[in-house]
Simulated assay, not measured.
Amino acid sequence: MDTGSQYSPRTVEDIFRDFKCRRAGMIKALTIDVEEFYQQCDPEKENLCLYGLPNEQWEVNLPAEEVPPELPEPALGINFARDGMQEKDWLSLVAVHSDAWLLSVAFYFGARFGFDKADRKRLFSMMNELPTIFEVVSGTAKKQQKEKSVVSNHSSNKSKSNSKPNQRGSESLGKYSKMQPKDEEEGLDEEDEDEHGETLCGACGDNYASDEFWICCDVCEKWFHGKCVKITPARAEHIKQYKCPSCSNKRVRP
């Protein structure tokens, strides 16, 4: 098992980068790769843990053999509850424990390298700017995003429809912003910031950036970084109706 325990970030920026990568891997397991994750969490197996790795990948494996372990351990036995509750509730529960593990790993590194009060506060502030894994998995982040957009639009007398991306699934937000005439660029930058600044990727949970390719699922209407769902602008041009991996793999379970 390689949980990235040999990697030792030493600065606030290093630890935050490590936090983001591990978080991205766990979000991927609970959203994009949910079918594979579900299958690996066999209740017939021993105590299993979900690990987020520094390379933005995830791993379901047994806990470390050494005591104490090199890094704090994730929640043990996540597989035992898989068939004893609704899948959505089970995924949300795993997400909550994953959030707790990410914080413990980050502050483990901070304590190990002697962070003072100011460094700990700055590290937590940087992590707290991102939605939690639970918020991404449960859809709470999307709900909060919409509520913020409604308040913002009400104060600026804009329609609710302007608070979210309005392009069809096979068009990117970045491409949309670049299609405007040059004399409108200044006003467009402000408008894009208002309309799309709170948009979150359904895979990694990161915010919208105008220089990145995005695509919207025509089923669940969530937006994704093209790189997160392995869709390029060229490929998107030939997609009539896009389904994200989660919607494509969705099936009825007993």
Rank of each mutant, 00 (worst) to 15 (best):
R10D: 03
R10E: 08
R10P: 01
E13A: 10
F16S: 01
R17P: 01
K20S: 07
K20L: 09
C21V: 04
R22F: 00
I27V: 09
I27L: 12
L30Y: 04
I32R: 09
D33P: 07
E36V: 06
F37L: 07
D42E: 06
P43F: 02
E46G: 07
C49S: 07
C49P: 03
L50N: 03
Y51R: 05
N55L: 09
N55Q: 10
W58T: 00
E59Q: 15
N61E: 05
P63C: 02
A64S: 13
E66N: 08
L71V: 00
P72V: 04
E73Q: 08
P74H: 00
L76N: 02
R82M: 07
D83Q: 11
D83N: 12
G84H: 12
G84N: 15
G84K: 13
M85W: 06
W90A: 01
L91E: 08
D99N: 00
A100Y: 09
L103H: 08
S104A: 15
A106T: 08
F107M: 09
G110Q: 06
F115D: 04
F115P: 00
A118H: 11
A118E: 15
R120C: 14
R120Q: 13
K121S: 13
F124P: 03
S125G: 10
M126S: 13
M127I: 10
N128M: 07
E129A: 08
L130K: 09
L130G: 06
L130D: 08
P131F: 02
E135Y: 01
G139R: 02
G139L: 04
G139F: 01
Q145A: 09
K146H: 10
K146L: 12
K148N: 11
V151K: 11
S152R: 14
N153E: 07
H154W: 09
S155Y: 13
S155F: 13
S163G: 15
P165E: 09
P165K: 05
S172G: 15
S172C: 12
G174I: 03
Y176E: 12
Q180I: 12
P181C: 03
E184L: 12
E184R: 14
E186S: 14
G187E: 15
L188H: 07
E190P: 05
D192Q: 10
D194G: 06
E195Y: 06
T199D: 05
L200Q: 10
L200P: 03
C201H: 03
G205F: 01
A209L: 11
A209W: 11
E212C: 09
I215L: 08
C216M: 11
V219G: 02
V219W: 06
C220P: 03
C220K: 04
C220L: 00
E221N: 15
E221A: 12
E221R: 14
K222D: 15
K222I: 12
K227E: 12
C228S: 06
I231F: 08
I231G: 02
I231V: 14
T232E: 06
R235E: 12
H238Q: 14
I239H: 04
K240S: 15
K240W: 08
Q241R: 14
Y242D: 01
K243L: 09
N249E: 15
K250W: 10
K250P: 06
R251N: 14
R251K: 15
V252S: 13
P254Q: 10
